[in-house]
């Protein structure tokens, strides 16, 4: 079995995320990191491999600017065997539909049996790339999967949906986005971090993977998100820093009592 894991570079969680008001796009200056949700997808691939299913290779795939190569290095340090980087000015500013199309075209050349994704990206939070990629690949897909078992050519997946937990059988090849409760991602070893840059990295542009450039990029995206406005301001709540717990508790009780909540 060949597994492809989609990974994305996002602003570091500690960095204040903001949108550039002139373009409506994410301000991508500042510290960046591998999307934390994607580490669960890499870990899921590793657990399939270590769980006794014959996995030929795990390939990390990303679409993004030059700097996104760091997300691939991180993915490789966590266990991927090699990586593919789609980078091309033509795809910049793509919406979900265009991003999913471009990723699907990139994946077609790899022809994986299983594509794994994170449940969401930490910046765009669109939750939907998996469903778009699957449609373009003509593959079945599920999102928010928290248990994944390989039974021959079938995956048995569990996830929480609107009315409780569902168990779904999915035939391979398939596209699965995993929830963050599926596993506890490992930390990379120092050796793996050092060796990550030496693993094969394939850098491709739109022409290399047959992407129709009239379908990608900000100008060709069907969803146009424009300058953000501020949400209605909610009166800020009271904040107590707990230094002396007895005193803190006294304050909480007084606050509750004032509102007749005890």
């Amino acid at each position: 079995m060949k597994i492809a894991v989609l990974v994305k570079e996002v602003p570091d969680a500690a960095v204040q995320k903001r949108v550039d008001p002139s373009t409506g796009r994410m301000d991508r200056s500042g510290e960046k990191n591998l999307n934390p949700y994607d580490t669960h997808a890499i870990e899921a691939a590793m657990q399939i491999k270590e769980g006794g299913v014959a996995v030929d290779e795990i390939v990390a795939v990303t679409m993004g600017p030059e700097s996104a190569v760091r997300a691939l290095h991180k993915a490789v340090s966590l266990g991927a065997d090699r990586s593919v980087h789609l980078t091309d000015p033509a795809v910049a500013g793509s919406d979900v539909a265009a991003t999913g199309y471009a990723l699907a075209q990139t994946l077609k050349r790899e022809n994986p049996d299983l594509v794994l994704l994170g449940q969401q990206s930490d910046d765009g939070e669109c939750y939907t790339i998996g469903a778009v990629v699957a449609e373009h690949l003509g593959a079945p897909s599920l999102t928010q999967v928290i248990k994944l078992d390989v039974e021959g050519e079938t995956l048995v997946c569990e996830r929480q949906a609107e009315y409780g937990y569902d168990t779904v059988e999915v035939g391979l090849p398939a596209v699965i986005s995993v929830g963050d409760a599926i596993n506890e991602p490992r930390y990379p070893s120092l050796k793996a971090i050092m060796g990550a840059k030496k693993k094969p990295l394939d850098t491709v542009a739109t022409g290399d993977v047959d992407i129709d450039t009239s379908k990608v990029g900000a100008d060709n995206s069907a969803a146009q998100w424009t300058a953000a406005k501020a949400p209605p301001q909610k009166a800020a709540g009271t904040i107590i820093e707990d230094e002396d717990t007895a005193e803190t508790v006294e304050k909480i009780v007084a606050w509750l009592d004032e509102r007749k909540l005890i």
């Binding site: 919406d95 539909a97 999913g100 939750y127 790339i129 778009v132 949906a161 069907a222 969803a223």
Partner: peptide, 23 residues
């Protein structure tokens, strides 16, 4: 909204070449 809403909406966007807004 809901889990299925996201999955169906995104799949339809891909099939129809349509734009999608979520949340």
């Amino acid at each position: 909204g809901g889990l299925l809403g996201f999955e169906i909406g995104a799949g339809l966007a891909a099939r129809l070449g349509a734009g999608v807004a979520m949340e």
